[in-house]
Design a protein around this nucleic acid. Sequence first.
DNA 1: GAGAAAACATGACAATTATCATATTCTCGG
DNA 2: CCGAGAATATGATAATTGTCATGTTTTCTC
Lengths: 233, 233
Amino acid sequence: MIDGIQTRCESCIVRQFNALRAMSKEELKKVSDAKTVKIVKKGQPIFEEGEKLPGVYCVRNGVSKLSKLSANGKNQIVKLAAKAEVLGQRSVIAEEVTNLSATAVDDMEVCFIPKEIISTTLNGNPNFTIEVLRHMAHDLKEADDVIVNMGQKTVKQRIAEAFLYLKTNFGEDKNGFLSLTLSREDIANVVGTATESCIRIISEFKKKGFLKTSGKKVAIVDEKGLQNVIDGF
Amino acid sequence: MIDGIQTRCESCIVRQFNALRAMSKEELKKVSDAKTVKIVKKGQPIFEEGEKLPGVYCVRNGVSKLSKLSANGKNQIVKLAAKAEVLGQRSVIAEEVTNLSATAVDDMEVCFIPKEIISTTLNGNPNFTIEVLRHMAHDLKEADDVIVNMGQKTVKQRIAEAFLYLKTNFGEDKNGFLSLTLSREDIANVVGTATESCIRIISEFKKKGFLKTSGKKVAIVDEKGLQNVIDGF
DNA sequence: GAGAAAACATGACAATTATCATATTCTCGG
DNA sequence: CCGAGAATATGATAATTGTCATGTTTTCTC
């Protein structure tokens, strides 16, 4: 992780989409003065499971995977976090070590905000606290949905769903390929299956004309086909 | 759901273990005056997925399962909530319909608290908001762990884990049987498997001397044996 | 306490998924 | 642009899990 150029939080658009928008001008100024911008290259960690985080990380650009190592040595990706998401909140709020690792999937630009500023604001600005609470409530709901999917859907359905998720959340480039390119292994770790199984199912989807690939890039050709898989047809 | 006897929140021990302990005397009095105590019989719903909740439910006694219906018509149990847990918070905070159903697994006694009181306190008492936030952060961490288990462990491992969970969280009776008795179907819905598979694995655990049963009641005979299953031996 | 309904149990089989082996293709630094 | 290493791909096979059928036990109601 490399320290980069400074920018003012007050004029950062990203803030509008997370809890920081509930901060007062003065609070925001403090954050802006204390924060450091960091560049994280693709594949590099932002923090690792078990660390005591000195603060939170606000994503300005790029995508991060939040994962946890399981007993069998495999990684489960619990969430993909993009622009405007704040990482490490839970650890700072609960004053515990993180339960998740965060790794850059893309080249990223993140702002590090020391935890003292977050705690102070939590204690002093009820609107901020409520805003954080709302975001956390949303995350919890999403986590519940993931649990239901993991428990009730087949690997094939979950992979189909993952691609639609990537499309709706990260979009496509000019040529119709998914903007966010994950390795097959990462996709396997999102849906909780073996890498080979994941590759096999992607091949099947290609044969059936649901997907096409070009190198690591994947394009959704037949969205309805994927949706039918998800719906059990 | 039947309305029961009134009791004062101020003297309720349960409160010490949830966010309500951060309320002031006056706030607590308001809650106490507005709340209603309800008796929910085993098997009956407290609320159903998709409802707009008029408030939250504080569990005084008994256990509730929080579940979500999946597209294939099966239920996934996302969490078991016991004494002192507050149900429906997320819905009230996000001002959305609930994403989960809550059903009594035991005979229950719950206190209903109108949402207006919760919102007012959230806006007026930062300590309360932070306390709610802490609890939600904890729930989110637990949800992450469930996701990892679902993604990385076999059905057999998850069932073994479920029994140890029941022991550590709900304890055993005088005869060594788990205090909380779930149907095989409920256990299957916790771990995300077919009821028959669940029954089969329980039979296997009995044969191996890890468990014994008496009617629906289950006792853990060889905890280490179950732990070995979980650890992949 | 008899009968019905629900829960539990097990067999047989099919489908899904994991594992191991081995190619093949891509990627990237020198 | 070449070669090493990583990522992707596929075959063969075993293990796990789901589904359907059917029987047994438990529980509940009248």
